[in-house]
């Protein structure tokens, strides 16, 4: 008898606070699997943002540190500089990271701060009821754009991996989609690589995870997986956008 899969030890033995089918659960589960594998739970510091992922406060078993909306990279910077031996990750939503916190993420990435950002992009402001985010797709409806996003009015959805990978300092920048087993398995590897780079002191690492929001997209969980395949993924293309180690070789 061999266990093929067991629930990560890095998660508390309680149900998550997320809605049914929400892939925030998947994202933090993957982080938990990697932290388990690296044996780092007691050494992690999870920087909590504002958004639905704040619910991880009651789900992640390790240490948590709260931050003001969008300011997780600034808090992570301070903590990591004081405690460089700790494995630090900020877990941020797209409204948090690409809107109110845009200055903080770019500045931290540009300084090459040695921590990891897990960027959970569901192209909406989930927690506050589905307003348009900087990442809302063209034509995607939101409570603040009933007819769907129109670039003439609101600009185009912001591609954070593409943007950050133009900076000199970041060591690893990659995007994965969590709507298929292949995407999930690749994302796990990406998160592991980011954490290993951080532990080796290589600098700023950024892992974008394309997720969903069944509740505010107004779809069943299974419908959101299809929507991601036909709408989200063609625009936010998965892939490794920057890998300093690969450049050296």
């Amino acid at each position: 008898m061999a266990k093929v899969y067991t629930r990560p030890q890095s998660l508390l033995p309680v149900p998550s606070g997320f809605c049914p089918g929400c892939l925030h659960s998947m994202a933090i589960k993957l982080v938990g699997e990697v932290v388990d594998e690296l044996g780092q739970l007691d050494n992690t510091m999870h920087i909590i943002p504002v958004g639905c992922s704040t619910l991880n406060l009651l789900y992640w078993k390790g240490d948590n540190l709260g931050s003001a909306h969008g300011r997780a990279p600034a808090v992570a910077t301070g903590f990591k500089r004081c405690c460089p031996e700790r494995l630090v990750f900020a877990y941020q939503g797209d409204g948090d990271l690409a809107s109110i916190g845009l200055a903080e993420i770019i500045a931290a990435a540009n300084r090459g701060e040695n921590f990891t950002v897990i960027f959970a992009n569901n192209s909406t402001y989930g927690m506050t009821g589905g307003q348009m985010a900087p990442t809302t797709l063209i034509g995607q409806k939101a409570t603040t754009c009933k007819m769907g996003r129109d670039p003439a009015d609101s600009g185009y959805p912001m591609k954070m991996c593409e943007l950050l990978s133009t900076l000199e300092a970041p060591a690893f920048v990659a995007r994965y989609a969590l709507n298929t087993p292949k995407g999930v398995n690749e994302a796990r590897k990406g998160i592991k690589k980011a954490f290993e780079y951080q532990m080796a002191g290589k600098g700023f690492t950024f892992v974008e995870l394309l997720i969903n929001c069944p509740t505010n997209w107004g779809m069943s969980p299974l419908q959101t997986l299809e929507y991601m395949e036909t709408n989200t993924i063609p625009y936010f293309k998965p892939g490794v956008y920057k890998d300093k180690e690969a450049e050296v070789k």
């Binding site: 008898m1 061999a2 266990k3 093929v4 899969y5 067991t6 629930r7 990560p8 998660l11 149900p15 998550s16 997320f18 089918g21 929400c22 892939l23 925030h24 659960s25 998947m26 589960k29 938990g32 087993p181 999930v184 398995n185």
Partner: peptide, 21 residues
């Protein structure tokens, strides 16, 4: 076949898979 795909795709980590002898 104990492939574990169900557990991989379970967002809630609600599934455990065991491979028999």
């Amino acid at each position: 076949i104990a492939c574990g795909i169900c557990a991989t795709m379970c967002p809630e980590a609600a599934i455990e898979v065991t491979k028999g002898e």
